[in-house]
Design a protein around this nucleic acid. Structure first.
Length: 1120
RNA sequence: GGGCGGAUAGCUCAGGGGUAGAGCACUGGCCUUACAAGCCGGGGGUCGCAGGUUCGAAACCUGCUCCGCCCACCA
């Protein structure tokens, strides 16, 4: 037995989290087997850059992948989560260069390639693992033994093999092409590495003199300096303005070159600009294509530094922007600048450094995409690889079907150097081994200095990390991998390329499922960025950040005193909860805090359990036996059944990658059911004298907590392990929760009956609590509550009254058949029971009335809606019968409820007796006559005025019955038959007569039901008092009636006219139209009432037997 | 210019033809022996707008308006 103060009251993640990771790791729990009898499950990590520092994006993927990994591991898979890092060519080189500049004021060229690379490696050794350590903080259960780096020996070999093989296959080639060039990073870029930004620019209109003519051809351009490289002017071949010029020449201003006028329908649109386009094939992708079509000369006028070269004549040496200024200035001087317009244009910028990218002509290496893309598209079409969420499938197709060849060479030093050598004789050698000399001429070879695009090596990742090109056991076991989990921002960069390479080299898709998670944004939905100052550092959340100064500005504002340590579990759970498919994650600090509190809740619930388990060995002995062989209390059976549902639903969610559903099911179960109900209910047995019951409850508590912890473990690994270690457990359990079995549905724990009965217990407790809460009755004050219910419900409540009394704060509970009701009481009504708290002087009468009025308002709203719906002939005709039936039943239910509520108000005022006529009138008026014309139809259907009147017949029958004081089975059968046989046709009078008959036999429940259906105040009738209708003329009817009934009634009409006021207005509702006639009262006036024997069953305190009565309950289970 | 998401409570988000949900925030009552990071109540929504399909639409269809993202070579 653990004493209360043995475990701290508040959960402190710092201490706990620091401890466990090392233990797990040391014990080898993270490790997968190359060969195993278990089915394989494999995820390869999206390798973070070695320059990276943990950000929310990492936190998300670590969390999701770790959830999958831990879940599968616990479910008996040979689970490999393969970690690694990426050398991140440009990014890393830039970081080290910056560093070099800062510390030694040197450029990489000052050091030379070899020395510089040595420095980068040194930097990598020093800092490259930082990100890895941070991933571990999040709890990542990756197999670190297998950690790979894209530049390590094995992967380098794979890269070289892939390159050479594709070269040999003709899938890699070198060519002079127009490529994207970043003059700052000084390298070629792939299309993907260029970001397009919409910017405000200008459109310059320049006049080009037509040769041998006074005419000038005006072209429009956004980049005037490129005119220096123009090799044609294009017009639309159909353009009447220019058609005749095609084939002639213009004189290029400033340089004086003569260039042709060509017709090109593809490049030129007649509507845009002037309808004439200057063509610069060496500096624009469109123009490049045009040049190809027309065999135009290509003149580069910019060098790699984006400075004008010798081709630019007098402008040579000028930077591209200076050059532009000068060109514009000179054109203007020559009067050739026609006009300048503002113009929006999209400019390509370097993903890495943001500089404007320059399309330049340059010899580069390319991957031929078409032959690779085709099978990669097919694989997805055939469903061999599936995108989740599905919507990404189209994005993938769209891109894959529209691909240009991939430029893979980069003019960097840090990366995989291209295995190509050139000889002066013109020979190119591409080889797996470094060649000694030119195989053709024996001359000296010079190696290509360029390196490969980082994404080239990343594309090989799913198999290179498993040992390819060697045929390793790991490769055999784990390829294809199970899931690729990554952000949708790299679907093209990475996912698509893995698909292409995987299929090409491995003859099989690299992964069966691709789960693309959302991007993390701040709580306003904006991208997190340092510039915006809205970055939230995951580590600050995990460890806390006492210094507000170190927080980003937005956070600082909100947390001027710094951040507390929420812990990795809370962060993981938050991210999991917010990861709904297809939506960005807006990270809300309130959520983080809420889930930190959840951790604390789990912690304290566990403390409770451990403080109350008694001897561990006794619990263990109990746990060894299946629960179905034990005698369990309702609460025990209930929580096992609920657990079972939670397990089933969590598994479903995980299977479907609905992480947020998994989180919310588990949360709801633990907090809403285990803590809020079971723990509270268990106290009775734990603190009680029944040793057998106590032992059973202890075992159930222990089992349920064990299962809940396991269920949660993949989501919150640390806290679950910490607690689980302290829990007594079955002898068959391993020594860590992370290698224990994941919960499975247990059919023997299903128990719908327990769920139904508990639902009743909960309903009763909540009903009483509502009254207590509304009337502000302090919890310490014990009160009396009375519950009226029909027999099955009543019996169930009776059996479990020991649960109700303590949880509702009662010192007395009366459960009885509907009968005389307490005079002044608060009431809560449901379809299954009526709860009263008769506490004069305790209940705030005014408040209580307000509350009931409000409730009535809600009932009325529903009623009106339903009545209207039912009145629509089409509904009854076309809707499924069960839906119609359901609605009918609901109308009946609501009407009853309303009657009871109105009675409740009357009783509050001590005016119950005089109330009854009004009650009925109100019902009639409100739900029927009040509403639309079609409401008449519904009353017919329900068996009212228009229904078949069986009254005569029934009366005849009834009068012939001799009613004994004790029910006679045959008679009852007859009556029931009579009633059921004419169900749809009974009038209110019929109901009333039936009520009298039942009552005569002492069948109070049945009598009350009939009275209720007759719209009569049952208790009054039962007491045999003269009906109020006789004493009180309708006009005069008790003041209370006027207040109570009309409110609602008026609303129905008022709502129509004054929608704006509808919510606020009810108070002033006009008079109840219903009050005017009270026709029902007349009908109800019972001739036989006087005869009726007084009900014997007036509720006496605790009349009902306490011993359980085995009888099924009609109530249905409900989930809170 | 195409494509894809989104718009539901004050906030962050689930839901997906048949009675509008959660957490947080708000509010009333409680230091009740697991937990004040808590317990027990309560209030709060024309489900972006307009049409359509349907007996019935927040959900399905069409159009529109905003917001976000992706793709694209219109000078």
């Amino acid at each position: 037995m653990i004493e209360p103060n043995e475990i701290s009251k508040a959960y402190d993640p710092r201490e706990v989290e620091a401890r466990w990771y090392k233990i797990w790791s040391d014990r080898g729990y993270f490790e997968a087997q190359d060969q195993s009898d278990k089915p394989p499950f494999c995820i390869v990590i999206p390798p973070p850059n070695i320059t990276g520092e943990l950000h929310m994006g990492h936190a998300v993927f670590i969390t999701l992948q770790d959830i999958l990994t831990r879940w599968k591991r616990m479910s008996g898979f040979n689970t490999l989560w393969l970690p690694g890092t990426d050398h991140a060519g440009i990014a890393t080189q830039m970081v080290v260069e910056r560093d070099l500049k800062k510390t030694e004021q040197k450029s990489r060229h000052d050091l030379g390639r070899e020395e510089f690379l040595r420095r980068v490696w040194a930097w990598k050794e020093k800092y490259g693992n930082r990100i890895v350590e941070q991933l571990k903080v999040m709890g990542a259960s990756a197999d670190w033994r297998r950690m790979r780096f894209t530049m390590d020996e094995g992967l380098s070999k794979a890269v070289r093999e892939a390159f050479v093989r594709m070269y040999e296959e003709g899938l890699i080639y070198r060519a002079q092409r127009l490529i994207n060039w970043c003059p700052r990073c000084y390298t070629a870029l792939s299309d993907l590495e260029v970001e397009h930004e919409e910017k405000n620019g200008k459109l310059w209109h320049i006049a080009y003199p037509v040769k041998g003519s006074e005419q000038k051809l005006v072209v429009a351009t956004t980049r005037p300096e490129t005119m220096l490289g123009d090799t044609a002017v294009a017009v639309h071949p159909e353009d009447p303005r220019y058609k005749h010029l095609i084939g002639q020449k213009v004189v290029l201003p400033l340089l004086g070159r003569e260039i042709p006028i060509i017709g090109d329908a593809e490049l030129v649109s007649m509507e845009f600009g002037t309808g004439a386009v200057k063509v610069t094939p060496a500096h624009d992708f469109n123009d490049y294509a045009t040049g190809q079509r027309h065999g135009l000369e290509m003149i580069s006028i910019l060098d790699l530094a984006a400075k004008a070269n010798q081709n630019a004549g007098p402008y040579a040496g000028l930077d591209r922007y200076k050059c532009r200024e000068k060109v514009v200035e000179d054109l203007e001087k020559q009067g050739l600048l026609v006009k300048i317009e503002d113009h929006k244009l999209s400019m390509g910028t370097c993903q890495r450094c943001g500089d404007v990218v320059e399309p330049l002509l340059s010899p580069q290496w390319f991957v031929k995409i078409a032959p690779l893309a085709e099978p990669a598209i097919k694989a997805v079409e055939e469903g061999r690889t599936r995108f989740i969420p599905e919507q990404w499938t189209n994005t993938y197709f769209g891109w894959m079907r529209n691909l240009h060849d991939w430029c893979i060479s980069r003019q960097l030093w840090w990366g995989h150097q291209i295995p190509a050598w050139y000889c002066a004789c013109g020979e190119t050698v591409v080889s797996r081994e470094d060649p000694a000399a030119c195989p053709k001429c024996g001359g000296a070879l010079k190696r290509d200095e360029d390196v490969l695009d980082t994404w080239f090596s990343s594309g090989l990742w799913p198999f290179s990390t498993l040992g390819w090109p060697e045929k390793t056991a790991a490769l055999n076991t784990f390829y294809p991998t199970s899931v690729m989990e990554t952000g949708h921002d790299i679907i093209f960069f990475w996912v698509a390329r893995m698909m292409m390479f995987g299929i090409h080299f491995m003859k099989d898709v690299p992964f069966k499922n691709i789960y693309l998670h959302a991007m993390v944004r701040d709580e306003r939905g904006e991208k997190m960025s340092k510039v915006k100052g809205n970055v939230i550092d995951p580590l600050d959340l995990v460890y806390g950040q006492p210094s507000a100064e170190k927080l980003a500005p937005d956070l600082k504002k909100k947390f001027p005193k710094g951040l507390p340590a929420y812990g990795a579990d809370a962060l993981r759970f938050t991210l999991t909860s917010l990861t709904a498919q297809g939506r960005d994650i807006k990270l809300s600090m309130d959520r983080v805090e809420g889930y930190r509190n959840f951790c604390n809740k789990i912690w304290n619930a566990s403390r409770f359990v451990m403080m109350n388990l008694g001897e561990p060995s006794a619990v263990q002995a109990r746990l060894a036996k299946p629960f179905k062989q034990q005698k369990l209390a309702l609460a025990d059976r209930w929580i096992l059944a609920r657990l079972n549902r939670a397990v089933t639903e969590t598994l479903q969610a995980l299977e479907a990658y609905k992480f947020n559903d998994a989180a919310s099911v588990a949360y709801q179960f633990v907090w809403g059911e285990l803590c809020d109900w079971y723990i509270e209910l268990s106290k009775g047995s734990l603190y009680g004298q029944d040793e057998e019951a106590k032992a059973a409850t202890r075992a159930v508590l222990c089992h349920v907590l064990d299962q809940a912890l396991k269920l949660l473990h993949p989501l919150m690994p640390y806290i679950t392990e910490e607690i689980w270690q302290k829990l007594p457990r079955r002898a068959t359990e391993p020594e860590s929760i992370m290698i224990a079995g994941y919960p499975k549905p247990e059919p023997s724990h299903e128990d719908e009956q327990a769920e139904r009965e508990m639902a009743l217990v909960i309903e009763a407790i909540e009903g009483i609590r509502t009254i207590r809460g509304e009337s502000s009755i302090p919890p310490a004050r014990k009160i009396l509550a009375i519950i009226h219910a029909e027999s099955e419900v009543r019996q169930a409540l009776e059996r479990h009254r020991q649960y109700i009394e303590p949880l509702a704060g009662l010192d007395d509970l009366v459960i009885s058949a509907p009968g005389a009701k307490p005079r002044v009481s608060a009431t809560v009504v449901s379809s299954r029971m009526e709860v009263f708290v008769p506490l004069e002087g305790v209940i705030d009468l005014a408040e209580e009335e307000k509350r009931i009025q409000k409730e009535i308002g809600r009932v009325d709203a529903d009623l009106q809606l339903l009545t209207k719906k039912l009145a629509n002939p089409n509904f009854a005709q076309k809707a499924p019968p069960e839906v119609v039936e359901k609605d009918r039943a609901r109308v009946a239910e609501l009407e009853q409820k309303k009657v009871k509520l109105l009675e409740g108000i009357a009783r509050l005022k001590g005016e119950a007796q005089t109330e009854k006529i009004d009650v009925e009138a109100a019902v009639e008026g409100l739900s029927f006559e009040k509403a639309e014309p079609e409401a008449k139809v519904s009353i017919k259907a329900a068996g009212g005025e228009g229904g078949i009147d069986l009254g005569q017949e029934m009366k005849g029958e009834l009068e012939n019955l001799k009613l004994p004081a004790v029910p006679d089975a045959n008679l009852v059968k007859q009556l029931d038959k009579l009633r059921e046989g004419t169900k749809e046709g009974l009038s209110k009078t019929d109901h009333y007569d039936l009520g009298v008959a039942y009552m005569g036999m002492g069948l109070v429940d049945d009598a009350v039901r009939e009275f209720n259906q007759a719209g009569v105040n049952a208790p009054e009738a039962m007491k045999g008092e003269a009906p109020a209708a006789k004493k009180a003329p309708a006009a005069k009817q008790a003041p209370a009636a006027k207040k109570a009934a009309p409110k609602k009634a008026a609303k129905a009409t008022a709502a129509k006219k004054a929608p704006a006021a509808k919510r606020a207005a009810p108070k002033k509702a006009a008079k109840a139209p219903a009050a005017k006639k009270a026709p029902a009262a007349k009908k109800a006036a019972p001739k036989k009432a006087a005869k009726a024997p007084v009900a014997k069953k007036a509720p006496a305190k605790k009349v009902a037997a306490k011993k359980p009565v085995a009888k099924k309950s009609a109530a249905s289970g409900k989930r809170r």
